[in-house]
Computed example of a mutant assay.
Amino acid sequence: MENINNRIRSVFDKIDYLLLFCMILLFIISLFAIYSASGQYSADPTFFLIRQTVWFCIGLVAMFFILFLEYEHYRALAIPMYIAGVLSLLFVDLFGVSNKGSQRWIAIGGIEIQPSEFVKLILIIMLATAVYKITEKYKTTSKRDLYILISIFILSIIPFYFIFAQPDLGTALVTIAIAATILLVSGISFTYILLIGLAVILFLLLLTWLFIYQPDIFNMLFKEHQLTRIYGWLQPEFYAGSFGYQLSGARLGIGSGGLFGNGFQNGFIAQSGRVPEIHTDFIFTVIGEEFGFLGASVLLLIYFVLIYRMIIIAINCKDRFGMYIIAGVIGLFTFQIFQNIGMTIGMMPITGLTLPFISYGGSSLLTSMIAVGVVLNVHIHTKEYMFGDKQP
């Protein structure tokens, strides 16, 4: 019993409390935003609030258990978890619950779970494991770089395909962001990174050319649900009465917030129902309209501190495997924050992507909290070596 108490004390002594505080602060902000946005969806404005709080408590329990399993054991679990994750996506494809043109959920006991949310974290652990093992086995730079590229591509393309087919463009793009971030810190040759970057730019230019000059071919690349969002993003004024209705309302609401906002529950756009799914994908509209530029800036500042602490933990990590994991989590959060806020103000295409810790959604919140738990785990169990790093 004494050993258990000592271990618990040791874990809590090493926790990065600033990172944990940022997460809790974001959740508190989300409660205000979700409560304010709930009136248009339910006669009981506390309905979503209570459910989100329950998921947060579940997330805290999950984080607590994660902290006591040293992250080095993740390598042994990576392949079984990856297989289970891919099978869950296949199950969604065959038997999943459909809603508003997408088939992304599994119904379990009256609760809808979105497996793709958890697959993001599984992919991070799988890619980190693969890159770590390759760097340990192959010391020749050219062979090592080639194997890293092939492994990351194959391991990422499988979940990307299933998620993109749901269709869920936002989460599919997150898998690319995760893979790209881990690739950047893998130590791969800059030449490969430059070539991949040029390939991405050429691909985007090709899509732009097809959109302008070959719209029929462009439309064949995406499903109808995705096309409506793309056209609503590129031409929101033209499609303000249909595809661009959501974006037009969001931009109007955020713009009307001004410097100080219109006040809690006083946002006309947020309270009128002019922005569908405002409590999930477009929750930033509530913050921008009701708390203004200052409120939005505070939110971004908290996110900045959250990511900054993760970067510091990654830099101080003495183990490459732990660094790869944290890099993947940083890529996940950074892309989701940028994409969600960007799509709300019209800078990025509209995708069904939540704002971490803020948007309503059990699967999203639980995944984000587990991701933070994994980062804290790496921080807590990072070992100090007398002669420097563990690896040469």
Results as ranks from 00 to 15, higher is better:
145 D>H: 07
202 L>I: 12
156 S>M: 03
149 L>M: 14
122 I>H: 11
179 A>D: 02
113 I>M: 10
170 G>P: 04
182 I>L: 11
152 I>P: 14
118 F>A: 11
113 I>E: 10
136 E>Q: 15
155 L>F: 05
204 L>T: 06
153 F>M: 07
133 K>Y: 12
200 V>W: 12
167 P>G: 11
166 Q>R: 05
133 K>Q: 14
164 F>N: 02
157 I>Y: 09
128 A>T: 00
125 I>D: 03
147 Y>P: 02
191 T>H: 09
194 L>K: 11
159 P>F: 11
130 A>D: 08
144 R>T: 01
195 L>Y: 11
155 L>R: 08
152 I>F: 10
152 I>C: 11
142 S>N: 11
189 S>N: 10
121 L>R: 06
174 V>D: 00
154 I>R: 00
148 I>D: 13
168 D>K: 09
141 T>L: 15
192 Y>H: 13
118 F>Q: 03
170 G>R: 04
150 I>S: 00
178 I>A: 06
164 F>K: 02
156 S>A: 07
118 F>P: 03
204 L>Y: 08
197 G>M: 02
182 I>G: 07
114 Q>K: 03
180 A>I: 08
187 G>Q: 14
165 A>C: 10
183 L>I: 05
153 F>H: 04
200 V>F: 14
181 T>D: 02
144 R>N: 07
155 L>I: 03
164 F>A: 11
161 Y>W: 14
167 P>E: 08
182 I>C: 10
166 Q>P: 03
162 F>E: 02
174 V>K: 01
116 S>Y: 06
119 V>R: 06
192 Y>W: 15
145 D>C: 05
197 G>A: 01
151 S>Y: 05
168 D>R: 09
154 I>M: 06
116 S>M: 01
201 I>W: 01
173 L>T: 04
182 I>N: 02
186 S>Q: 08
190 F>D: 04
179 A>R: 03
125 I>W: 13
195 L>R: 12
168 D>M: 10
154 I>W: 00
185 V>N: 08
193 I>V: 05
141 T>N: 14
190 F>H: 05
172 A>P: 01
